[in-house]
Every structure is written in C-alpha cells, then in structure tokens.
Design a protein around this nucleic acid. Structure first.
Lengths: 114, 114
DNA sequence: CTAAACCCTTCCGTTGACGTGAAGGTCAAG
DNA sequence: CTTGACCTTCACGTCAACGGAAGGGTTTAG
C-alpha cells in the first residue's frame, strides 16, 4: 500500500510516516516510481509506534524495541535481553507519571468540589 | 524572600520562577533594588503550579485556575463557576492519558514477559 | 572595603514530533 | 492528453517550558 492509505488507516499523516522512517521506525519498500510501498503489517507497527509515543517514549527507544516485537500482535520478545533494563526503567517511569497524574487529578477534584 | 530561596524551597530554579511570572502565574513584589520579593505562601503556590504542570496543563490554564485556589491548602473554589466546564474537560483528558499510559505499560509488560 | 554570592534584564538556544509550503515527478480517469 | 490527486525531496516554522550566557547592579561575610 502507499503512504496515503496507511496514513488514513492509522489516523495519522504522510508527513508523520516519513518522519518515522527517517527515525528508523519503518522501512518501506520502493516502487520504480520512487513511491513508498508498505506491507499490510505496517498498520500494526504504526499503531504500536503511536501507543509507545503517547506513553512518552522517544523514537530512539521505540526503534530499539520494535525489532523485538515481531509481526504477530501479542508476541513476547525472547531474544532481546539487553533491553530488559531500559524497558524496566521506562515501565517505572510510566508508573510514576501515572501516579503524578492521579495526584494532579485529585487537586482538580478538590477545586471542582461540589 | 528572594528568588533563590524560593527556588531552593520548591526544588526548582530562579529561571523557572521568572518564567512563571512572565506567564502570569506569580506576581512577586519588588524591592527598591529591583529584586523580587516573594511572600511565604508563594511556596504553596509554586507547588501547585508544578503539580498541575506535571499533569499536562499549560501555563495559560493554570493562570486561570490559580485565582480560584486561595492561600489555604485544601480549599475549594466556590467562586469560579465559569471554569467548571474547562476543568471537567482537563479532568477527562487526564483520565484518558492515564488509560493510554496503562495500555502502553501493558505492551511493555508483554514485551518484557518472563 | 572588598570579594563572593546573589540578583537584574535581554536575548538567543534547545528538544521532539511533527506542520507547512515550494518545486517538481507520477498515475488513473475521462 | 489533460486534469487532479498523489507522490517525491528539501528546508524552514511551531510550540512549551525552560537553559544559558552576556553585561551590569546589590548584598553580605570577612
């Protein structure tokens, strides 16, 4: 599929997809015309990227993670033990952020009050 | 108190405090020398600011909220009903963000696996 | 009285994930 | 064969919350 269709399927823009490629997150093939050509699994990959981005992970970190998450949806990663440390830190960071959000939401609740 | 002491008390920097003032979040007095002079309650105010910032609220929104949160710590805001809508939306946004973080953390957990 | 430490304003720099044209090739349909 | 939608590569712009340096007054400890 071409870039426009993938963008529509994933609710993003061609510009963002080119950016992901520039950051090493996607490696689409090329046609003779130069147009990018994405395989169907790219949709899943892009959704993963969006999810991890929204969690505050940077593109560099995601670029390390993605090769450990094969095409299938709910797959574990048996073969990237070097990343476990970093992933655990990211996990902790996410948990911290959630706690902070809960605290701030409590403040809002106190302000909203009745 | 002067800016350096307030910065130490709140774990931030003079630069950040000047920025908050620039955005209308703080209004310290001035001495003849031009030095900023903060009242003791400023410490509480700054902590509120930090908490709301960490929740993803922008300085403009916080500037609207602050006048509704008098000096006392756990006070409600009876007198700003116009903000209730916006605050409710921010609250919803925070909840959404937390859900997204939980989802992303689940992805990480699946990757970390064993 | 002097030196260190602190403060002032002004202004430009940073970081990340894109947005926004510009100038031009490509492709399916009428 | 031409429109119009889609694509390409630059390359600069944006937004938020500050960081940092320049150039110069102020306060305080010795």
């Amino acid at each position: 599929m071409r870039i426009g269709e993938l963008a529509r399927l994933t609710g993003t823009t061609p510009r963002a997809l080119r950016y992901y490629e520039e950051q090493g997150l996607l490696r689409p093939g090329r046609r003779q015309s130069g147009y990018r050509d994405y395989p169907p699994q790219a949709e899943h990959t892009v959704r993963h990227i969006q999810l991890l981005l929204s969690a505050g992970l940077g593109t560099a970190t995601i670029a390390e993670i993605l090769p450990c998450v094969p095409d299938g949806a709910t797959v574990l990663a048996p073969k990237c033990p070097e990343l476990l440390d970093g992933l655990a830190r990211e996990r902790a960071r996410i948990t911290e952020t959630m706690a902070g959000l809960a605290a701030a939401r409590n403040v809002l609740d106190r302000i909203i009050g009745a």
